[in-house]
């Protein structure tokens, strides 16, 4: 299988879906002429023209709201946010209009919309540009939320998101854009709500999403090499819908759990996962569920400290050993 970057995988997903359905178009800041702030949309303007690849002004509320209206009329817009942090200036459109139109119309109007872009810290851009809002989005009925960790998942999940008839918030990670992974030439889709066991193990289940999956996989290697601990790593891939069964199956096998996320801990995604595990697999647990989230403060700028604020392999190892006590 050919190896491509996470970035190219996303671009291919959009190109294939735009090829397939002329109602799919992409708009966002710098997506066309500039070829994308992260070059995710590189080549799309040349291929599909300016009617379908549209540079917007710096107006997140304006263009995401416009996309909602266009989606109600049957288009399938993809909006790129330069940072998911910028969703905060469009909160009413994205978190109030997008998820509620179907409900308030009693099912008469739909919003088949994808809003995508990076949602991560760790890039020395300070607190205002480092938000991870997957927990707010998943807390909003009417929205779906996906957080791919690999090139393969990014492509398959994005294709599913574009075909979905409801709004899907698709959260990528700038640090992963250059990561390469195997992606088949032939078409494939990954359904939302299907977790993936990225590494099998018997001693401990590590549940993660987004880049925390990659961090956890590195930690799992160290655990095996240095501590003879065989950790299983479950990648959620989407937060809502959530594949509970894959998580629970792993927990029933290993009986020990560590939850790792770059989300903040207070009311974060893993608070929900922890609740779900204790409710459904309490009798299988041999110890308390452990959590490792971003350190609970605004994202710090200072580069060496910022690295310590997010989960890193060594601290995942320490937390995993703690979970085994």
């Amino acid at each position: 299988m050919p190896e491509i970057t996470y970035r190219t995988a996303l671009m291919e997903a959009m190109a294939e879906e735009m090829e397939r359905d002329d109602k799919v178009m992409i708009m966002g800041e710098e997506v066309a002429q500039f070829k994308g702030s992260y070059k995710v949309t590189e080549g799309l303007l040349e291929k599909f023209g300016e009617k379908r690849v549209i540079d917007t002004p710096i107006s997140e509320a304006g263009f995401t709201g416009l996309a909602i209206g266009a989606a109600m009329m049957g288009l399938r817009p993809i909006c790129e946010l330069m940072f998911w942090s910028f969703s905060y200036v469009a909160f009413d459109q994205m978190f109030n209009n997008a998820p509620n139109v179907r409900y308030m119309s009693g099912g008469l109007a739909n919003v088949p919309l994808v809003i995508r872009g990076p949602a991560n810290g760790g890039t020395n851009v300070g607190a205002t540009h480092s938000h991870t809002p997957e927990n707010f989005a998943a807390n909003t009925p009417g929205l779906k939320v996906a957080c791919p960790a690999t090139a393969y998942d990014a492509k398959g999940l994005l294709k599913s998101a574009i075909r979905d008839n409801d709004p899907v918030f698709f959260m990528e990670n700038t640090i992963l854009y250059n990561d390469k992974g195997e992606v088949p030439d032939e078409e494939y889709l990954i359904p939302l709500g299907s977790a993936d066991v990225k590494r099998e193990g018997t001693d401990l289940t590590i549940v993660a999403h987004g880049r925390a999956v990659i961090t956890s996989l590195k930690a799992a290697e160290i655990l095996e090499e240095k501590h003879n601990v065989h950790a299983e790593v479950v990648d959620l891939r989407s937060i809502r819908p959530l594949d509970e069964e894959t998580i629970l199956e792993s927990v029933r096998k290993t009986n020990r759990v560590l939850l790792v996320e770059e989300n903040k801990p207070f009311c974060g995604v893993d608070a929900q996962i922890s609740h779900m595990i204790q409710e459904n697999a309490f009798d299988y647990l041999d110890g308390p569920i452990k959590r490792l989230s971003a350190v609970d403060a605004p994202a710090i700028y200072s580069p060496p400290l910022e690295k310590l604020q997010l989960p890193y392999p060594e601290i995942v190892v320490t937390s995993a050993l703690d979970a085994l006590k």
Binding site: M25, K51, A61, G62, F63, T64, G65, L66, A67, I68, G69, A70, A71, M72, M73, G74, L75, D92, Q93, N96, N97, V101, M104, S105, G106, L108, A109
Partner: peptide, 30 residues
């Protein structure tokens, strides 16, 4: 709401519908 009568709501937040209106027009043009 009555999409069958080209009526796309009734929106509760002041001015929240104004970008949607631009989007409806955008879809017509598209």
């Amino acid at each position: 709401f009555a999409p069958d009568k080209n009526f796309w709501g009734g929106h509760g937040i002041v001015a929240g519908q104004t970008p949607l209106g631009a989007g409806i027009a955008y879809a017509l043009k598209y």
